[in-house]
């Protein structure tokens, strides 16, 4: 089947029941989305489909309709995505394993709500687990990303 991932069209030869995550990782070699739980309970595998956040570990690849965006597809030749830049500026990551998913969820949040409140952040990010406890910095980075994004636009 054919998928559009990070702006590129790719051919995937897989059982349509295979979760998108494994099609990306084991077949297409796109390693940005991580495997954490396999039941949509940790958010490490989060990608966007037509801009909406999706846990790729439970979505059968055969059901994918729309363009897939992973952490590898959000920066531009001009530089990092404002959310990535904010993550860098706030020095958010510790082990870093969950952060691709955290960043993708934050990207989706900011597309809907340009300047989210703390409550908006709580309502968006609860599905993304971080075992290193970087939450205070994630919160700060989302606020910073909102400012960066507003300044750029």
């Amino acid at each position: 089947m054919n998928l559009t991932v990070d702006g590129k069209s790719i051919e995937i030869d897989a059982d349509p029941e295979m979760p998108l995550l494994w099609a990306l990782r084991d077949i297409a070699g796109i390693l940005g989305p991580k495997f954490g739980c396999g039941i949509a309970a940790c958010g490490a595998c989060t990608v966007l489909i037509d801009g909406s956040p999706v846990r790729s570990c439970v979505l059968p690849v055969g059901q994918v309709e729309g363009a897939v965006t992973t952490i590898e597809g959000i920066s531009s030749p001009a530089g990092l995505h404002p959310v990535q830049q904010a993550w860098l500026d706030e020095q958010v990551s510790q082990c870093g394993y969950c952060q691709a998913g955290q960043i993708m969820t934050a990207v989706a949040l900011l597309e809907e709500i340009a300047d989210p409140t703390d409550e908006d952040i709580d309502n968006a990010m609860g599905g993304n687990l971080c075992r290193c406890g970087t939450y205070p910095k994630i919160r700060a980075a989302i606020h910073r990303a909102a400012s960066l994004k507003l300044a750029r636009s």
Binding site: E17, G38, I39, A40, T46, S52, P53, V54, R55, V58, L59, P60, Q63, T105, A106, A108, L109, E111, E112, I113, P116, D120, N123, A124, M125, G126, G127
Partner: peptide, 17 residues
């Protein structure tokens, strides 16, 4: 909500897992 839609986890069919 923005960032955590029902469809973020719940697709058109039951997860087999």
């Amino acid at each position: 909500n923005a960032g955590l839609r029902c469809s973020t986890c719940h697709s058109e069919e039951n997860s087999a897992v």
